Amino acid sequence: MKLKPYRIGYRTMKTALGAAIAIYLAQLIGLDYYVSAGILTILCIQPTKKKSVRAAFSRFVASMIAIGFAFVFFELGTYHPVVLGFMILLFIPVLVSFGFSDGFVSSAVILLHLYDAKNLTGGLFLNELMLMVIGFGTALIVNMYMPSIEKKLDRYREEVERLYSTIFRETTIYLRHGESDWTGKELMESEKLIEKAKALAYQDVENHLLRHENKYYHYFDMREQQLQIIERILPKITALPVIVGQTQLVADFLEDLSEHVHSGNTADQYITKLDRLKANFAEMPLPDTHEKFLAMADLNAIIQEMETYLEIKQSYKGFHNKKGLNPSPA
């Protein structure tokens, strides 16, 4: 059987390091069940900082609830497997009701310590509290380091822009010649890439505790909206019954646009060009056949869609390049 290639990632390294540190600290200060500090750390290492904080909080609260249950069922009742099972039967729905169900495993660790000790003393409570502080605290500390993913997001951004340029360029060829051997694969590639990029951008948001927005997420969301417009335009272009004079004007506009798909925000100038294009349309002779009339109607619809396309970009703040400029419209 062929083994799958495996690379040790940051999360794996942080889990190993965190578990080792937690166990060492718990053992150093002489805690009972010190190895459990490593288990609690492992349970709290999450893919993002925010998820790690939420996990630590949820597990801490669930563990404190577990101690309360243990006091009621064990100290006021008896230490017996049947009592333990009945308590868990009631304990899980309580955690679910309060939204702390993901803390069950860590709280079960604490619960079994109390069951094993057969005596809930102040010293044991302090021992379990210290295990939680060391275990969850170590996880939070080691998880504060997250590698930057901006370079990867920049690569995705540049690739989306390249794909959009290709789409507009191929559309221009079709408008000018009435045919093209373009397969349209860039449309599907764009959709998949934007979906992947938005997921990664959201992860970047989750890695900043005080940040709730992300310029990359807004960027790819904007591109996704534009892609929907492109997907509406293309059927209209391929369905043009005849090539009319106005078709070449639209082709010139799209060709110009294909050469200026970047991350900046100067869409105003292209909206101005689109206004001039509409003015040129108005000055041209009226269609003298039904097919030309239909072609004109479709071209006008395309122009309206392109105006929306540019307005979406116009409302976007844009990226700054290395010189601090916003270089492009599309």
Rank of each mutant, 00 (worst) to 15 (best):
N143K: 00
M1Y: 12
P285T: 11
M146A: 08
T172K: 03
A301N: 07
D154W: 10
L25Y: 15
Y145M: 03
T238V: 15
Q226M: 01
S63C: 09
M130A: 11
M144W: 14
G245V: 14
I21S: 05
G77A: 07
G264F: 06
T171E: 13
W182V: 01
T308N: 07
K198D: 02
I92Y: 04
D32S: 13
N326F: 13
L120Q: 04
Q203L: 09
A108F: 14
R54L: 10
L140D: 02
Q314P: 13
I237Q: 00
F71I: 14
L28S: 15
Y164E: 13
Y270N: 14
K49I: 03
V242Y: 05
M1C: 09
L210N: 04
H260D: 04
P287G: 11
Q225A: 12
Y309G: 08
R155H: 12
I23L: 12
H208Q: 01
F125D: 08
W182M: 07
L163W: 00
E291K: 02
Y24P: 05
H208V: 05
V142K: 04
H262G: 15
L31G: 09
N265W: 09
L249C: 15
V83Q: 03
D181T: 11
R169C: 06
K151S: 15
K151Y: 10
D275W: 08
I237C: 02
S263W: 12
E189Y: 14
M13Y: 13
A301S: 07
T78E: 11
K4P: 11
A37I: 02
F57M: 08
A199H: 09
L153W: 01
F136K: 09
L193E: 01
N207R: 04
S180R: 03
P329F: 10
A295P: 09
R7G: 06
N207H: 00
K49D: 02
L129Y: 08
L43R: 05
Q226T: 02
P329W: 08
L240H: 00
K14Y: 06
E224L: 13
K152V: 13
V53A: 01
K14E: 02
D32W: 08
G68M: 12
H262D: 06
L131S: 06
N265R: 14
K14W: 07
I271C: 13
Y309R: 10
L210C: 11
N265E: 07
M146L: 00
G318H: 08
Y24M: 11
R276D: 15
K236W: 10
V160G: 07
Q269N: 10
G184N: 01
D298K: 02
M284Q: 14
D116G: 11
P81W: 01
V83A: 07
Y316G: 13
P47K: 04
I303S: 00
S101K: 09
E307N: 07
L84Q: 03
F104Y: 14
H212V: 13
L129C: 11
L175H: 06
H208Y: 02
A301C: 03
M188Y: 09
H80Q: 12
P241E: 11
K2F: 13
S52N: 05
Q269P: 07
A16C: 08
L126P: 04
Y174E: 02
I141L: 12
